[in-house]
Structures are given as C-alpha cells and as structure tokens.
C-alpha cells in the first residue's frame, strides 16, 4: 500500500484561542497505480492532509504510512519520503526561483544528491514529459506564460521521479483549454505508472480522471468510493458547497422523475445513451 492514513488528527495552534481541528480522524488508503481524487471546499482540511502525506506536517506515530514507512516515527527518513512522494502545491508557478528552467527543474534532483549526468538526464526527460519544448530549458522561467510556468513547476517535482504524485488544484486559474490540457497531462503521468492523488474542488475534473474519490468535509471524510458512487449524493454534496457534474445531476433528477436510468452515470455519453434507451431510441442510432 503506497499510502495509508489511519485515524489522522491535526490540531492547529493547540492551547491557544486560535485552536482549530483541521483533521478529525481521517483514514484512507491509496493503492498502487491508482488515480485518487480528494475533494472538499476551502477549509475542509485537504491541504493539511496532503502536507502530512509528504512529512511536511508532523503526525503521531502510527497515523501516516508511505510505502510502509511510518512518518510519525522520529527516525523517519524524510528524504526517502520526499523522493517517494512528489507534492505539487496550488499555484506551483510561484515557487520558481532559478535563472533558467533547466536549473529550476534540477533543484529537486540535486537536493537528492544525484550524480550530475543523472540530474541532466532527468531534467530533460521531465521537461519533455510535461509537454514543454526542450528549447525552453535555457530560458528564464519568469519569461514564460502562466500555463508554461506551471508545467515547469510540475517538471521540477517529476524530476525527483516520485512513485506517488500529489497535486493540489493543478488546474486552478487556467482557462478551459488550459484546464483540459493540464488534466490530460496528469492522466498521461498516471498512465505511465505513477500513482496520482489529485486535490480539487471541481467534481467535473475528478469525475473525468479519478478511479476513487474521498470527499472531505470539516476535517472528516464524508463520502468515499468511485465517482459514480459519490455522485449519487448530489444533494448532500451541494450542502457541503460542492457540485456534482451537470450530467450526474440530470441523471439523478430524471431517475426521480421516473426515468429508467441506472444509478451511477455521470459521463455525458453514458447519460445520453441511458436517455436514448429510455426513450426507446437506444440501439437505433449510435450515441
């Protein structure tokens, strides 16, 4: 099990008037090669949760395990953890600092004290992997467009070759085409064998990509399961400030109106086929 979280509790500023429970006993597991989505609105505790998965927040012994390592253990090898878990924060383009793209991408691998040729190899590979032209390597990251900068930042994490990649709102602030490209980039990374955990508040995005979802609400896991299972709870999710994809909403609504539509549909093509089926047009024409 690459990631295992058992009853994780996190309290901010304990013992002060600002004391706040960010996480109140969260348990979850991520399996090898999975694409997992964590959804929740601002303040649901999702950012705190992913900080724990990388050892950036200290947890109690026995609460967070990465590839079998207990991150709460005093002797936990944090470099090994950070090598295993790549963490891409929200708006990661704001962490770029080097003179050139290549140097910035090399920051992670050189912190791992790898040999120079290995670093160079990884840097050019990572730049290609995020779909950037190799010619950007010698440019200053500050000259690039917003979307390109974000790709550089992701390349910087990929160059550490983590077996698990965690991304916090990777598509935030991008326009629709940028969003689609970013999601397909992440899907490609997943398809090449990396376990991916994506934090988002867009149900559309997680529905499109993820095998399994965890819905976080006020520091607790409210729902978990496949997107189809989670989207059945459209009204409860709405109450948590989250929206299910429009097509899932329509399917749930039509089912209540007496349409014969199976549970758990949320993709446009599936819902279309189900509607046609119900209207007696299924099979006549390809949907």
């Amino acid at each position: 099990m690459p990631i295992e979280v058992k009853n994780l509790v996190h309290v901010y500023m304990p013992g002060t008037p600002f004391e706040a429970h960010a996480l109140k006993g969260v348990s979850l597991a991520v399996r090898d090669g999975e694409f997992v989505g964590i959804i929740g609105h601002t303040g649901s505790g999702k950012s705190t949760l992913i900080s724990h998965l990388n050892g950036l927040e200290k947890s109690e012994p026995g609460a967070v395990f990465v590839n079998g390592m207990d991150l709460g253990d005093k002797g936990a090898d944090l470099i090994a953890v950070r090598r295993a878990v790549g963490l891409v924060f929200q708006y990661p383009e704001y962490q770029l600092f080097e003179e050139t793209v290549a140097k910035d991408v090399a920051f992670g691998p050189s912190n791992l004290k790898l040999p120079a040729e290995e670093i160079e190899r990884r840097v050019s590979e990572a730049i290609l992997r995020v779909g950037l032209d190799p010619s950007v390597s010698d440019k200053s990251p500050f000259e690039l467009s917003g979307g390109q900068k974000r790709r550089v930042a992701i390349a910087g994490v990929l160059a550490m070759q983590p077996s698990i990649l965690i991304l916090d709102e990777p598509a935030a602030g991008l326009d629709p085409a940028g969003r689609r490209e970013m999601l397909s980039l992440i899907r490609n990374i997943h398809d090449s064998g990396t376990t991916v955990v994506m934090v988002s508040h867009s149900m559309d995005d997680v529905g499109r990509c993820c095998d399994r979802l965890f819905v976080l609400n006020r520091g607790e896991i409210a729902f978990s399961g496949t997107p189809a299972e989670v989207f059945l709870h459209d009204e409860a999710l709405h109450g948590m400030g989250l929206d299910v994809p429009e097509c899932a909403k329509l399917a749930n609504r039509l089912r209540r109106e007496g349409f014969d539509i199976p549970e758990g549909l949320f993709r446009e093509e599936e819902v279309c086929a189900a509607i046609l089926n119900h209207l007696g047009k299924g099979g006549k024409q390809p949907c």
Binding site: Q95, G108, N111, L112, M160
Partner: peptide, 12 residues
C-alpha cells in the same frame, strides 16, 4: 507556502 513547496522538493 513557498517554504513548504521547496521542502517538498528536498530543500533543507
């Protein structure tokens, strides 16, 4: 935030 991000990239 930046400090956390750089730590995640192995900064010490």
């Amino acid at each position: 935030k930046i400090m956390k991000a750089q730590k995640a990239r192995g900064a010490d």
